[in-house]
């Protein structure tokens, strides 16, 4: 089966289930992906009526994590009658993981949520394609059979076409994804529509971190320095992250100030590393942070390293089973304490 036909199948499934859910009044609204106005992006919209269902799409550019819209600081989905809304949400593997993780953190209630599960086939690494094409204007991106076909205009005004093999130009987090279809383990069946799987244990070799782990202390510091020098402090990584739901982010604390907000490299590094540590054992590898970064910084790399540490230490993978307590919010008497300093 080609990627193109997979996309068509996923899209049809989304539309069919969405129509059913809206018509049967099981949900009031569906959060989903719609076509964007520029070739590199898909957009997001709230669908309230089954006659709008054909706006919903699936096209390998749907990189934002929709779970974010359930935990935004000020609820965007408001019912005029102040009744709690029943929400349908397009659920690729990582969105499913986000929802389960958010449930374990008491941020959402499955009673209000209907997940439309899909067999996600991955997101294009748009930063890499833009970088490799150089100074051109991208006019169209389509997935045809198993290729990403990019139509672009060069500086001479000529329209050209270049093909990129889909499997190679997947985003890094999608390449290493182990849970493409959302997990339904211990999730109320009344919330699951579409494709789900039972996940109990996830084998992950974290091979993609090998290169990073080879670096020694100084090299690693230089790597961070080089990477974060490009950061513009726009906080798109934080805003795209479904796990960043604090009422007041530590970087915004100003009574008194906790962290500097300047473009000084150490201020920037302090922000990103502190944010990453807050995500230890919580990050679900959706890669929305890396894809939404305007400077093309691969932020997911650090949170992934922290996932590995949590996995090795506690055997925990975030967002596969709502019954398992996240290790960093729980304790066991036999937890290793070798990091404790003796008096």
């Amino acid at each position: 089966m080609t990627t193109e036909s997979e996309n068509q199948e996923i899209q049809n499934k989304i539309r069919n289930i969405a129509t059913e859910l809206l018509n049967s009044k099981k949900v009031d609204v569906i959060i989903g992906y719609v076509n964007g106005t520029i070739p590199l992006d898909a957009s997001i919209d709230f669908i309230w009526n089954s006659n709008q269902v054909n706006k919903l799409v699936w096209n390998n550019k749907c990189y934002l994590n929709l779970a974010k819209f359930l935990v935004s600081k000020e609820p965007q989905l408001q019912n005029p009658k102040d009744k709690k809304l029943n929400i349908g949400i397009i659920t690729k593997g990582c969105i499913g993981r986000s929802l389960i993780q958010l449930y374990t953190e008491n941020k959402i209630d499955f009673a209000q949520i209907k997940m439309i599960g899909i067999n996600c086939n991955g997101i294009i690494d748009r930063n890499r394609i833009v970088k490799e094409l150089g100074e051109v204007e991208i006019l169209e991106i389509n997935v045809i059979e198993n290729d990403i076909v990019v139509k672009f205009m060069n500086l001479k005004g000529e329209e050209l076409i270049k093909k990129f093999p889909f499997s190679e130009y997947l985003s890094r987090s999608c390449k290493n994804c182990k849970i493409k279809t959302p997990s339904s383990t211990n999730v109320p069946q009344s919330s699951c529509y579409g494709d789900f799987q039972n996940v109990s244990n996830v084998e992950d070799s974290f091979n993609d971190l090998n290169e990073f782990e080879k670096l020694n202390f100084n090299e690693r510091f230089n790597y961070f320095e080089k990477m974060f020098k490009l950061c513009t402090n726009c906080y798109a990584c934080r805003e795209a992250c479904p796990m960043c739901y604090c009422n007041l982010c530590f970087i915004d604390q100003n009574k008194p100030t906790w962290f500097g907000k300047t473009n000084n490299i150490y201020d920037i590094m302090a922000f990103h590393i502190t944010r990453a540590i807050h995500l230890a054992g919580r990050c679900v590898d959706c890669g929305a942070c890396s894809q939404s970064c305007p400077a093309g910084i691969d932020l997911n790399l650090i949170t992934r390293k922290l996932q590995k540490i949590v996995k090795n230490r506690f055997g925990y993978t975030a967002g596969i089973d709502p019954k398992i307590k996240p290790p960093l919010t729980d304790f066991k008497l036999d937890d290793s304490e070798e990091f404790m300093l003796e008096e």
């Binding site: 957009s43 997001i44 919209d45 709230f46 934002l64 974010k68 935004s72 965007q76 513009t232 402090n233 726009c234 906080y235 798109a236 934080r238 805003e239 795209a240 100003n254 100030t257 500097g260 907000k261 300047t262 939404s292 305007p294």
Partner: peptide, 22 residues
């Protein structure tokens, strides 16, 4: 609806002038 609340549009804008004093 789809705004995620990041500062990209303002930081990328050649005419935006807002600043915070610290």
């Amino acid at each position: 609806n789809n705004c995620i609340g990041c500062g990209n549009c303002a930081f990328i804008c050649p005419t935006c002038t807002c600043f915070d004093v610290i």
